[in-house]
Simulated assay, not measured.
Amino acid sequence: MFSMMEAARLEALHLAQDPATGLKAVIAIHNTRLGPALGGCRYLAYPDEQSAIRDAARLAQGMSYKAALAGIDHGGGKAVIIRPPHVANRAALFEAFGRFIETLGGHYITAMDSGTSSLDMDCIAQHTRHATSTTSEGDPSPHTALGVFAGIRATAQARLGSDDQEGLRIAIQGLGNVGYALAEELHAAGAELLVSDLDPGRVQLAVEQLGAHPIASEALLTTPCDILAPCGLGGVLNAQTVGQLRCAAVAGAANNQLASPEIADELEARGILYAPDYVLNAGGLIYVALRHRGEELAAITAHLAQISLRLTEIYAHAQADKRSPARVADSLAERLLYGP
C-alpha cells in the first residue's frame, strides 16, 4: 500500500466503510501545496478493492496537475465509492459518505463525477460543507465542454493552421454529458461529426439533432478524421490503438487518455498532436472550484478562457523543445507542485 502511495506521490489515503448503508469508500489526496484537495467522487463497480484504490490514486494525481495548470488554489484529490450489487437506500449511502468527508476537516472537497449526480452531492452536503456541484451550484459538464471546445480550436490552430471549425472532421468517442455538449458546440461551429457511444440512443440523438455520422465504437479510432476527441473513460490510447490512429490531433475530455506516459512519445513520433487531457478538460474543475467560493458566472467564464492560452503556451514549448506536449505539461505542473 505504501509503495503504491509513494509511486503516485500521494500525501494521504483514507478508507471508510458503513455496513448499515453498504458504503465502501476511498479518498486519495495527492497534493495540497496550492490548497485543499478538490476532486470528483466516482460511484462505480470495481472488480476488487485494489482496483478502486489504484483508480482513486491515479485520478487524484491527475487532479493535482489539472488544478495547478488551471491556476486555481487547490490541490488534487479523488474519491471512489465502490458501487454494491444492491443498495437499499442510495441517499443514505451518500449521506454516510458526507459524514466521512466531514471527518477530514476540509482537506478534501468532493464533486460529481462518473456515476454520481448533483442529487448525490445534495445528500453529501447535508453533512459537510466540503461538497460542490450540488443542484444549487449547477452541473459542471457544460463548462467542461466549453473548455474542451476552446482547446480544440487552439489545437486546430497549432496543427492545422486555422482555428476555424467549419468542415473539420471531428470524431467524438463517448456522448455522455460532456461529450454531447461538446458535440453541440462543434456542430454549431460547422464541424462534421463522427460519433460513437455504448448507448445507441445517445448516438441516434446526435444523428437526429446534430447530423452526426454514427461509427461503431470499435471502428472509431481507425476512422480518418482531423481531430479525435476521446470523451469516455480513460486508457483509450494504448500500445494496441496508437498505431491505428488516422487523425492529425487528439483533443478530448476524457481523463487519463494515455495508458502510459510513453504513449505520448509514440504520438509525437507519428506526428499526431496530443492535447494533454488534464489541461483541456479543466473547465469543470474551474467551474466547481470558483462556484464553491462564490464567484459569479462572468468571472468563471473569463477563467475558462485561460485553457486555450495555456494550451497554446504548452504547444509552443513543445515545438521549441521537440518534446511531446504531455511531457511539457507534466514538467510545468510539477514545477508548481514540487518547486524547481
Rank of each mutant, 00 (worst) to 15 (best):
P84E: 04
E6V: 15
I29T: 00
H30N: 05
V80K: 00
G211M: 09
M121T: 03
T132Q: 11
L205F: 12
T103G: 00
Y315N: 06
Q209H: 13
Q157Y: 12
T301I: 15
A145E: 00
Q61L: 15
Q50K: 15
H86L: 07
R42N: 02
R58K: 11
M1E: 06
A67W: 10
I81A: 01
C225S: 02
L193F: 14
S51A: 15
A302R: 07
A158Q: 10
S64A: 05
F94M: 09
R323F: 01
E95S: 02
I124R: 00
Y65D: 06
I29A: 00
E185L: 15
I124E: 00
Y315A: 04
G271V: 06
E208K: 10
L267E: 06
H86N: 12
Q319A: 14
A145D: 00
D226T: 07
A25G: 08
E137I: 04
A320T: 08
I72F: 10
E185R: 15
G62M: 05
V178Q: 05
A302W: 12
L233N: 11
T21G: 03
I172A: 02
I172F: 11
A156E: 03
G98P: 05
E185H: 15
R159Y: 15
A56H: 05
P85H: 07
L175E: 00
C123Y: 05
I124C: 01
L186E: 01
F97A: 09
A219L: 13
R169I: 04
D163K: 15
A25Y: 00
L168D: 00
L228C: 08
A171W: 08
A318H: 10
S141L: 01
G76W: 12
E11W: 12
A289G: 02
N255T: 04
T128M: 02
A248I: 11
A181Y: 04
A45F: 05
G283F: 04
G161K: 08
V242P: 02
I27C: 01
R169E: 08
Y338T: 11
E262L: 13
A25P: 09
